[in-house]
Write a protein that binds this DNA or RNA. Structure first.
Lengths: 275, 275
DNA sequence: CGGATGGGTTGATGTAAATCAATGCGGCCA
DNA sequence: TGGCCGCATTGATTTACATCAACCCATCCG
C-alpha cells in the first residue's frame, strides 16, 4: 500500500557497464564488476537510435523528450548464464531488454525451479510491489539491458503520464500470459505443454524486432533444462516429447537449438487439448 | 498496441441490477436479467459509504470527486454459481468486487478448468489488453460487484492520474501472485500445494474488509472442486491431502466449509518445500 | 592428445497422483 | 416421506511422468 515506486538509493552512473562472465561457474553476482566505457556527458542519440524503442515502453516518450530518457538509462551487457536480478534482493532497478533473451524464475529452498517467463528484446522487467524482487533473472545468451533506478523511473512516471498507461498495458499483457501459463501448468499434459510452447515461440518470433523466422524454423536460445523448468516437466520428458513429435512428423529437431515446425496444424490440435 | 482502454458501447444504466439465479443449473448467462431498483438520480453517498472503498482502487479518488465515481458505477448482485464474465466474450466492463468471493478461470475445449485466482472484496477485475476477456468469472457465494464500462473507466483514467498508478499497483500485485502460483503448479507436490493454499487463505483473511479469523479458523467459500481446479489437482487428491493433514495434527476439518489451522508452523514447513 | 564437462537422447523402473468406484450425508422438492 | 442431487470421503487400480541410469557428442583445456 505504500509508495509504489519507492525511491532506491544508487550512486551516479555512467553510460555503459558490463557484467562479465569472469568465473566459469554460473553463480549469481549481486555486485557485478563494472566496466565503464566512455565517461562524462551523455550521447544525445543513445535512446534515439535504440533498436527496441519502437516496441518498448520507451516509445511513448516523444522524440523531443528523448534526452530525458537517455539521462537516466544505463546500458548493461550481461554475459550468458549470468544473473542480474536476484529473487528476494532489494528491488533497486528496472530493466528494459534490448537484445538477447532473459529467463525469469522463482525457486524453492531445495533448488526446484520454475521459469515464469522468457523476456525478449523490448520486454520491461522489474515490476514489483514490494521493495524486493519477486523473481530472479538470468541471461540465456548475451543480453543487453537498459537499466533505470526506481528513483529515476519514478520521476519519469511523474513527468510522462503516458508512460504509466503503457506500463499498465505491459503488466496486463504479462498477466494474460501468466494466466495462460497457469492453465498449461495446472491442466495440460506433457505433449500439450510442449506443443503450446513451440507455438508460442513461433508467435513470439513473428513479432517485430526479432529475426524473421522463415519457414517454421525456430532458433530456441534456451536449453532443454530451461524448457523443462518453464513447462513444469523434466529434461527427459521434454526430450522424449520432442522425439515423439519428430516421429509424428510434426517437427524436425536440428542440431543444437534449431527446431523446425513442419505441421502447425497438428501442433495446434495438440495444444488445444485434443491430446 | 492499440488503445488500451478501448471504448465499449453500452446503453445508459441505472443504479442497481441483479443477476438472478433463476435457473437451477449453473450455466452462463451472458445477457443477465436486470432488476433495476430505484431510478433517476444517483445517490450522493453511493460510493462514499462503500465498505470496500478504503481498500480498493477507488480509494485514490478524493472525497470531493467521489460523485464522479458514483455516476459511472453500477452495482450488480450476482447469485451463487452464476457467471458474469465469459472467457472470450467482448470485454465491455470492469468490475470491483464489493462483497462475496469470485472465482476466475480459464478452460480447455474439453472442459478441463484452471482457476487462476479468487477475487475477494476490494479486488479489481477485467484488466485485459485485447477487446475480449482472457478469463471467465463466476460468483462462488452471493457476490456484489461495482461495474464500470470501459468507456467511462477510460474517462476516469484521463481525469484521475492517481487511478492509473493504483491500477498498475493492482496489476503488479496480481503478477506476483501469478508467479507464485506458477511455481506452485509447476514444481510443488500435492501436499505442498494444499499447505500453500491454506496459508494463503489465512493471510487473505487477515486483510481488512474480511471477517476477523480468530484462532486459525478459516471459512473457505469454495468447494473441493474449486480448490482442486485452483491447485491443479483432482477433488480426490485435495480431500485425501486434507485428511492426511488432519491425521498429522496440522488442521481440523469441520463440517461444510470450515477448516481450522492447528499448526501454522507445520504447514509452513510443508509449503516451503520440505515435503 | 585425453579427460573432464555440459547438454542431449533413450531405456528401465518407480511412484505420486489420476482415474474408477463405492458409500455417506445433507438439502431440496415432488 | 422418499428419492434425487451435489458434495465429500475413502479404497482399489491405473498411468503419465519422474527418477535412475547408460550412453553419445560437442567443446574446452591442461
Amino acid at each position: 500500500m505504500s509508495g509504489y515506486f519507492g525511491a532506491g538509493t544508487r550512486a551516479p552512473e555512467s553510460e555503459l557497464e558490463i557484467i562479465m562472465s569472469d568465473m566459469p561457474s554460473c553463480q549469481f553476482e549481486s555486485r557485478p564488476r563494472r566496466i565503464v566505457i566512455g565517461s562524462g556527458g551523455v550521447q544525445a542519440d543513445f535512446c534515439t537510435n535504440c533498436s527496441v524503442r519502437p516496441t518498448s515502453v520507451c516509445s511513448v516518450i516523444e522524440p523531443s523528450d528523448i534526452s530525458r530518457l537517455a539521462e537516466v538509462a544505463v546500458e548493461t551487457i550481461v554475459s550468458p548464464g549470468r544473473g542480474f536480478i536476484e529473487e528476494g534482493a532489494p528491488a533497486t532497478d528496472f530493466f528494459n531488454v534490448t537484445s538477447g533473451t532473459v529467463k525469469l524464475f522463482k525457486a524453492l529452498p531445495d533448488g526446484r525451479r520454475q521459469i515464469t517467463g522468457f523476456a525478449a528484446p523490448g520486454h520491461f522487467l522489474g515490476l514489483a510491489v514490494s521493495d524486493n524482487y519477486a523473481f530472479g533473472a538470468e541471461a540465456i545468451d548475451t543480453v543487453r539491458v537498459c537499466r533505470f533506478s526506481r528513483e529515476k523511473m519514478s520521476e519519469l512516471l511523474d513527468d510522462f503520464p503516458k508512460l504509466e498507461r503503457r506500463l499498465l498495458e505491459e503488466a496486463s499483457n504479462e498477466l494474460v500470459a501468466a494466466q495462460n501459463q497457469m492453465l498449461l501448468l495446472g491442466r495440460k499434459t506433457a505433449r500439450e505443454r510442449v506443443a503450446s510452447f513451440l507455438l508460442d515461440q513461433m508467435q513470439a518470433g513473428l513479432l517485430p524486432g526479432q529475426p524473421p523466422p522463415s519457414g517454421g524454423r525456430l532458433h530456441l536460445p534456451m536449453t532443454r533444462g530451461d524448457i523443462a523448468d518453464y513447462l513444469g516437466l523434466t529434461i527427459e520428458t521434454v526430450s522424449r516429447t520432442l522425439s515423439w513429435m519428430r516421429a509424428q512428423g510434426m517437427i524436425e529437431v536440428g542440431k543444437g537449438y534449431a527446431i523446425t515446425i513442419v505441421s502447425t496444424a497438428k501442433l495446434e490440435v495438440l495444444a488445444a487439448g485434443n491430446s
